[in-house]
Design a binder for these strands. Structure first.
Lengths: 211, 211
DNA sequence: TGGCCCATGTAATCTGTTACATGATTGT
DNA sequence: ACAATCATGTAACAGATTACATGGGCCA
């Protein structure tokens, strides 16, 4: 086991909510509330953050002088706090963009459950697929809204990411719709033939790992 | 603010590593080590778990009598511990499958960084895209291996999930390859024209939210 | 009058990652 | 000789989710 080389520790840490906020603020000032809405509308298909992480993140960024905070008094509501990126904040973000080795992680309970389709009632399967298609439609709708936004001259990156999202999610949607019937039929048939199909013993087999 | 209704709390909690283990064990007995390999080969594109979560999960499952553990002595290595699903474990898993409302979450630092393509050096952009394509190829390869596995009579669900993965990742891959040049060119052009493009103030604009 | 939008924040909790700890065998 | 595979586990830590806490304005 190698001791961590002092100069090369190189965290390579993943992007966190602070980075998300910094990034959004490169487009202009905003409150925590605004940021959450922005994430939902614009980043919904690949990122997200709740108030429980946004507000603490903004507080930390303020302490670190990466953003400044203007308080705007309001009645009935808590003061609106508008955050703006500082020069240091902008550079910190730029540095993060260049150093991070960006990961793409999918955590899909949906696919996991589908993997065990043979253990599910066909009706449940149909619900699952329909709900997922609806979610995809929802995300697709959000992206279209972003793009149709009045005064939306999206940056090249935004365009690319949005088109990418549309392409990939449309592919997912089409696959689900085109194969829905076959899957449900196959499972229904299996249940008919062999209702007690869920007891099979043996060893978890794995492919020969000649990576 | 409503108090949580006692009988309807209904956690709807997401799938965790324990569920992952339970699910894998429906295909046969396995050790913690085997399980990790299985996840990597078979679930790689939508799930994952490290030893740091698998081993504690198996311990908990054993305590809860959802699995049993046979210890096989070995020399030089720690005893191999082979886990097998109990009847209760199987039913618990089946119940989880039916009750969970399964989510599909993507957390892509890759897309986030790309969103800010206009702030990146073109070379960095190229690296990013190439690396992502390589990752996608890697995952596609893993799926093909699963499918070509000798004695691979995959269950309907497994087939569906793997074909789905191939379809969606192929779409992503194609998009990246087909639009790579255009993106890099656009960013390069922007840098030429306006090297100090990263200082723009204003307000984070959001679309009119007529959801 | 019930529910959503606005608007902020804290605290407890959950869950997973990373680093640590050990060590024989096999292949290059 | 060095790295990888096999094989298990713990402890500290990081990060995010959830519930809690507050409360006026607005629309149907």
């Amino acid at each position: 086991m190698r001791a961590p080389v002092p100069g090369l520790v190189c965290k390579e840490s993943a992007v966190d909510v602070k980075d998300l906020c910094l990034g959004a603020l490169t487009f202009g000032e905003a409150s925590g509330y605004d940021l959450k809405k922005f994430f939902e509308e614009t980043f919904s298909h690949f990122c997200g953050a709740g108030y429980g992480s946004i507000y603490p993140a903004l507080a930390e960024l303020t302490d670190a002088k990466l953003v400044t905070c203007h308080e705007i008094p309001q009645q009935g509501k808590p003061d609106r706090k508008v955050y703006r990126l500082t020069a240091v904040g902008r550079e910190t973000f730029l540095a993060r963009l260049e150093k991070t080795s960006p990961q793409h992680k999918v955590k899909s309970d949906f696919l996991l459950v589908l993997y065990f389709a043979h253990l599910l009632p066909p009706a449940r399967l149909e619900t699952l697929l329909d709900e997922r298609v609806a979610e995809l439609d929802h995300h697709l709708g959000l992206i279209r809204q972003c793009q149709q936004n009045p005064g939306s001259d999206e940056a090249v990156g935004a365009k690319f990411v949005h088109e990418f999202g549309k392409t990939v999610m449309a592919a997912a949607r089409d696959y689900l719709l085109n194969h829905r019937q076959a899957l449900v039929a196959a499972v229904a048939a299996a249940v008919d033939q062999d209702p007690e199909s869920n007891r099979r013993d043996g060893h978890l087999r794995r492919g020969t790992h000649n990576s």
